[in-house]
Design a protein around this nucleic acid. Structure first.
Lengths: 259, 259
DNA sequence: TGCTAAATCTCGAAC
DNA sequence: GTTCGAGGTTTAGCA
């Protein structure tokens, strides 16, 4: 823990001190954490006001701003990256304005007091990896077609047709065309209807028998009935198996598996 | 600034000290801020890993967790409210597990070091007010129909028809039926096509003349031409005026304004 | 409780 | 640059 690192921590600084430190940290593009009582105003794509309360304000190195209340996932107010800042003292308040262009938006935070000020230069190059995205499901199905059907032979993926992109497209053991719509989560009516549109389109292009398959870890209520009405099928896909296939095949290119 | 407030700030505590303080703060449902080098793992609706780097971790009073990198709006990892926590030391790491039920998800943050620890009981009851949502645009148009057309008489709003919900539905000065699709932002092709579906549907239910109106602060490129092709109209809506109408009418119920 | 639609959605990829 | 679609979307409003 060699701490030659840039890091300032102030507990209950005066507003004047806080203002100076915020200015300096902004100039050096450090990350800033402020904990204190504040009001917030926003003008831009919408408008909002937030009455006084104790919050956590985070200003990031790219000029993004987040104002967090003590509960919940979402910031109550925020500003996207690439803001320009102005910091000033006015009427016994520390005011930080964050102004964004294109679209033009402005966020104004008025601190009545600052309980904690933290500024730091953070070094973060750690890779983030999300497993089993919809794309990876697709890769898994193309790489291991038996995840879908025994003897399924994929022909293409992300095939562009008039109504959109067919996730996976191939032939079953009896030579019928198979149109597959993949969903990473339980599939609902929208997915069934989208599949239906793809199947309808493909029917106009060939004389062959066509199967429309909605492949997902599960179905939302009522979707099974809709599929039956539309003459489509549901196939359960095991996300765990997809994840294993994807990780084991990661080095190979997806296109290698096509006919 | 009477500071009898609950507030702990530690700079570069040992992991043992940090662990104790985190446990205590969690037990008291305080907000916790941690700045330090960590790795993160997530299992749940998906799976993810995040390699080592310096981040800001925020644990809120309702058991929500946010892990923020030095840039961007979104947390790289998070956990929704109502988590259960476990804090422990293992292999020279401070490990904080946040486990959520329904859906079952777990987040594990491994700190190699903690640069700053902050815990505080925050008091925040300030009211948040967002002006001019799409709903409020609707209210404004129903309350002040001349925002749309002189002598426009609204009949209903959010009227359910086969293709979906018609935002506003009414009669113009010449007794023609008016179907209105509202957009809070510049309207594009999707909005025009949706309006077109509503108008097509309404035509099947009546002999009357019908006007389809896309009402928005502006149009996206190409949408004007599409509207012309579809026989629809565009009307500019002033968001400022909507905001004023909404705020001045806020105490009245929207249904009061219907015919 | 479950589903639908909106969000100051954000973010990335494709065109 | 713009558009399009996905997201561990989240969140709020209703049936």
């Amino acid at each position: 823990m060699a701490e030659s690192k840039v890091l300032s921590v102030l507990r209950e600084p005066t507003l004047q001190t806080a203002a100076n430190c915020v200015r300096q940290a902004l100039a050096q593009h450090q990350c800033i954490l402020l904990l204190g009582e504040c009001e917030v105003e926003y003008h831009g794509r919408a408008r909002s006001t937030l009455a006084s309360g104790e919050r956590i304000v985070l200003i990031k190195t790219d000029g993004a701003v987040l104002v967090h209340r003590p509960t919940g996932y979402e910031p109550v107010n925020w500003q996207p990256s690439d803001c320009r800042f102005r910091t000033r003292l006015e009427n016994k308040s520390l005011i930080i304005d964050a102004v964004h262009s294109e679209p033009h938006e402005s966020l104004s935070v008025h601190f009545a007091n600052v309980a904690v000020f933290v500024a730091a230069r953070l070094s973060d190059i750690g890779e983030f990896n999300l497993h089993v995205s919809e794309r990876e499901m697709q890769q898994a199905v193309v790489a291991e077609p038996k995840l879908l059907l025994p003897d399924f032979r994929p022909i293409s993926f992300e095939k562009q047709v008039e109504p959109g992109f067919i996730d996976v497209y191939g032939l079953d053991s009896e030579g019928r065309l198979v149109v597959v719509e993949l969903k990473r989560v339980n599939a609902g009516r929208a997915a069934a209807l989208q599949l239906s549109r793809y199947v309808a389109y493909v029917k106009t292009t060939t004389q062959k028998k066509i199967r429309g398959i909605l492949a997902a870890p599960g179905l939302q209520r009522g979707t099974q009935k809709l599929l039956a009405t539309l003459g489509l099928e549901y196939i359960h896909v095991d996300l765990e198996r997809c994840a294993r296939v994807v990780s084991s095949q990661k080095e190979r290119k997806i296109v290698d598996f096509l006919m």
